[in-house]
Amino acid sequence: MDFSNLVIIAISSIFINNFVLARFLGICPFIGVSKKLDSAVGMGMAVIFVMTMASMVTYFIQYYVLVPNDLQYLRTIAFILVIASLVQFIEMFMKKNMPPLYSALGIFLPLITTNCAVLGVAILNIDTVWADGRSYNFIESTWNGFTAGIGFTIALVLMAGIREKLELADLPESFKGLPIAFVTSALIAMAFLGFSGMSIL
């Protein structure tokens, strides 16, 4: 267990391979929930939480259920089912035991099941290999899920901050709404592209 590996994972999944801006995962919530800053923060927190949990659970599914039984081809079905029930479970648990947290994140949770970033991080955790051919271990997977969620949140919050200002801007009629949101994200993505110079993996 090497601490430097965790630093590499964090820098890689927050900046270099940012989930939204470099890997195109989770575009729907990125465009859909970025109209207001506070809902963007709420959505970001919910995604960090679910991605971390999903990384942990799918690690066990992959290495203690699918691999020993030679069922890797069922990965997609198994992961999406586990993630859907996990989200449902978290929602029920929060509603019962943590009402303040539920009222803050609750409405975003159902949206997350069909967020491709969550299934994406689960699959990437399994598929990514280090230079020596070893795949991520449990701690690295969980950490990757957590930092990928942070990367998603950073992109979402940046976008929401800009879009709140854009509401007041004087735009050409045909660019109002979705088109300018995409052009803005192109500019943010271009800025994030600068980080690709420091690729580590």
């Binding site: 801006l21 470099a22 195109f24 050409p172 009629e173 045909s174 660019f175 109002k176 709404g177 979705l178 088109p179 300018i180 949101a181 995409f182 052009v183 994200s185 192109a186 500019l187 993505a189 271009m190 592209l193």
Partner: peptide
Amino acid sequence: PPGGFLTMGLILAFMQWNKQ
């Protein structure tokens, strides 16, 4: 990646312009 966002934004802007 930026090219993807940019192309999408411009195509959507064209669709909106056409509709208006």
